[in-house]
């Protein structure tokens, strides 16, 4: 065996495989489970945030819609009231015209 061979043998022996501590496998698996739990919690938080955002968005839209419906109802009621008042006034004017014997009213006569 030459010096070089002897030295290479010494190197191989010095750098031979070192066995890991027996708990290394368990430690890595525990760390992996912790990381998976963290990832799972992260995605649960993301999902909750998405659901909350969508719920709030739909809620705001529903509230605006209800507000518009309410405004439309109020306008309709006001319009009906105005039409009823105008109808009463017209009926009253018609009765007055009948009372004084007017049968026909030309538009030129009532215009501004």
């Amino acid at each position: 065996m030459t010096d070089r061979d002897r030295f290479e043998k010494l190197l191989s022996e010095s750098l031979r495989r070192i066995q890991p501590p027996p708990n290394l496998e368990g430690r890595i698996l525990r760390s992996l489970r912790r990381r998976q739990a963290v990832n799972r919690n992260f995605w649960i938080r993301v999902a909750a945030a998405v659901v909350l955002t969508i719920t709030v968005w739909f809620g705001l839209r529903w509230r605006d819609e209800r507000r518009r419906e309410q405004q439309a109802l109020e306008i309709r009621q006001k319009l009906e009231l105005a039409l009823r008042i105008a109808n009463d006034k017209l009926a009253e004017a018609d009765r007055e015209l009948n009372r004084i014997g007017v049968r026909e009213v030309r538009f030129e006569e009532v215009g501004p």
Binding site: R17, I18, Q19, P20, L24, I28
Partner: peptide, 22 residues
């Protein structure tokens, strides 16, 4: 695990750091 740990152990000369690296 032995291959990686041993490589790290020889390279770093620190068993704790080798475990972390593995």
């Amino acid at each position: 695990q032995a291959m990686v740990y041993s490589l790290a152990c020889h390279a770093l000369g620190d068993p704790v750091a080798a475990e972390d690296l593995t």
